[in-house]
Simulated scan of single mutants.
Amino acid sequence: MFDHVKFGVRDFAASKAFYLEALKPLGVAVIAEGPPAYGVELSPEGKASLCLYQSEEKPAHLHLAFTAENRQQVDAFYRAALEAGGKDNGGPGLRPHYHANYYAAFVIDPDGHNIEVVCHMPAA
C-alpha cells in the first residue's frame, strides 16, 4: 500500500540497530543510508521501505505493522525484537477479535512506538 514510511527517532544508532535486528526475520536490510539527519532506508529487497532519521523533536507515537509470510516469522520477529532491546507489548498469538487467522506479536521500540508483525494466513 505504501512506498515508504519515514519518521524521526531520538537515538539514531539505537533505533537503526533495533530495527535491523527485530526485522531481520522478515528479510529487512539497509538499502540506502546517509548521515543521521538524512537517515537510513530499510527494506526487504524490492518492497516498501522504512526510513529513520535523527530528530530532536519528540516524535508522536506510531503503530507500525509489518506483514509476515508465516507464523514462524512472527515468532522470530518477537524473539529478535526483545533481544534487540524492545519491550513486550503482546507476545505471538492469535487475535481472533480481528479475524480467525490474525496471528501477531507486538513490541515497543526504543522511542515508544508500537511495532507489530502480523500473519493473516492459517497455520501451516
Results as ranks from 00 to 15, higher is better:
L20E: 10
G8W: 08
A32I: 02
A22M: 00
K58N: 14
A76M: 03
Y38K: 13
D88M: 02
F2H: 14
D88P: 05
F2K: 12
A37M: 05
P35S: 11
A32Q: 13
S55M: 04
E83F: 02
R95V: 05
A76K: 03
G86L: 06
A123N: 04
N70S: 09
H61G: 15
D3S: 10
L42R: 10
V28K: 08
T67D: 13
E83W: 05
Y38L: 10
P110A: 13
R79E: 15
L62I: 05
H97W: 08
F106Y: 15
H113K: 09
P44N: 11
G93T: 01
N114I: 09
P44K: 15
P122M: 11
D75I: 02
F18E: 02
A123L: 06
G27W: 05
Y103K: 11
A123S: 09
Y103Q: 10
A48Q: 09
G93M: 00
V74N: 04
A37Y: 05
F2C: 11
A68Y: 06
E21S: 15
Y78H: 09
G27Y: 06
D75K: 08
N89R: 11
D111F: 07
S55H: 05
A104V: 02
S43L: 04
K47N: 11
N101T: 13
V117M: 01
M1H: 11
A123C: 03
H120W: 02
N101A: 11
P122T: 04
G39M: 00
H97G: 08
P36L: 00
M1R: 12
V30F: 05
H113A: 07
P59N: 12
R95P: 10
V5D: 14
E41I: 05
D109A: 12
A100K: 13
L20A: 04
F77Y: 12
E21T: 12
Q54L: 08
Y53P: 03
H97C: 06
I108K: 14
Y102P: 03
S49V: 02
E69A: 14
M121P: 00
V118I: 14
L62A: 13
H61V: 09
Q72R: 13
M121E: 14
S49Q: 12
A17L: 06
D3W: 07
L94C: 06
R10S: 15
G46D: 03
D88R: 01
Y53M: 12
E56G: 09
A13S: 04
V74T: 06
D88W: 01
V118G: 04
V28A: 09
A76F: 01
K58V: 13
L42F: 05
F12A: 10
E83D: 15
I108A: 14
A84N: 14
A60L: 14
L50F: 08
S43R: 07
R79M: 08
E21R: 15
L23T: 02
A17K: 10
L26W: 01
K16I: 00
P110M: 14
M1G: 15
D109Q: 13
S15C: 14
T67L: 15
C119R: 08
A124I: 01
F18M: 04
F66M: 10
T67K: 15
P59V: 08
A104I: 06
R95I: 07
C119V: 07
S15K: 12
N70W: 07
P44W: 04
H97Q: 14
Y98M: 01
T67C: 10
M1E: 13
H4L: 07
V5M: 15
L26E: 01
G39C: 00
F7T: 02
A29C: 03
